[in-house]
Design a protein around this nucleic acid. Structure first.
Ligand SMILES: [Mn+2]
Ligand SMILES: [Mn+2]
Ligand SMILES: [Zn+2]
Ligand SMILES: [Zn+2]
Lengths: 141, 141
DNA sequence: AATAGAAATGAGAATCTTAATCATCTGAGC
DNA sequence: GCTCAGATGATTAAGATTCTCATTTCTATT
């Protein structure tokens, strides 16, 4: 188990933190809700409380290990902070999430903010649409 | 009182709906939470329940009279659907909200979505930053 | 204008997600 | 192994929004 990330973040290395980090690293789903992580913990036989999952995720966010996203619905999702920043496209039908990065959009955002007298610090961009190829299981025949 | 908007939207003309619409039209704040609207109703002496405010706002949204935004925190805000689409910049310090529309960003969003196999239907874009001019009451001296 | 029926309302309960409490447990250093 | 600051887990609480259902209000019709 890779504990250096936790140590580097100034977090004590505990079993719940290691397990949660492991799920974020190894789950085939990149964007997970706290509940989803909790369920995976239960499935793998870990006795970790839901409150701990929320607490640890908030700490991971503060430490820069994960980002918290609001893609749709009322549940936040978390993803491991890997390389760099990106934004998201969500399918209204099947919930598929794709990631993208567009330098033109990023630059325009900075320009727009500046023109309005803001020093931009962050942004939230989510595109919503429908899968047009056969990848979407809910695509009308 | 202007009831044609309600009739056009296929909604029965009732006192709560008229009052809520009136607040959305006349309040100096463009972006209002359900609670804020409820408080304005109370202040103007109306006996309208909070549940009705939420219900009516949801109906207005479905009818295209208002849009619901998630600018920050955990409370949605609503704004009257006036001319056209726009996005928002929010000050992290004072909460000031500015509106903008950038055709380049809009076009890039469509292109990006298409490249990823999505027919884009909607998007949510919020920029977060700090006021840099004297308009921000929380700007460090 | 009175009436009837459908729809809307209001009070409060319920729900859902997330955060706070607090007694107990654990891990890092000695 | 011992200590204790910090972490955990069960539970409770909080905040936002929706639901339930008895009562009221529109609208249409007499
Ligand atoms: Mn992502
Ligand atoms: Mn706006
Ligand atoms: Zn899809
Ligand atoms: Zn400001």
């Amino acid at each position: 188990m890779e504990t250096s990330n936790l140590k580097k973040a100034g977090l004590k290395v505990t079993l719940p933190r290691m397990k949660i980090l492991e799920i974020l690293e190894t789950s085939e789903t990149r964007h997970l809700s706290a509940e989803a992580i909790y369920r995976e913990l239960l499935d793998s036989g870990e006795e970790i409380g839901l409150a701990t999952v929320y607490r640890v995720l908030t700490q991971f966010e503060a430490a820069g290990l994960v980002c918290r996203l609001h893609l749709e619905g009322n549940q936040a999702v978390f993803e491991l902070e890997r390389g760099g920043h990106h934004d998201h496209i969500v399918c209204n039908q099947c919930g598929r999430v794709e990631e993208f990065f567009d330098e033109t959009i990023e630059r325009r955002q900075r320009d727009v903010a500046q023109h309005h007298g803001f020093a931009i610090k962050d942004h939230a961009l989510v595109l919503y649409g429908d899968c047009v190829d056969s990848a979407c299981p809910h695509r009308p025949a």
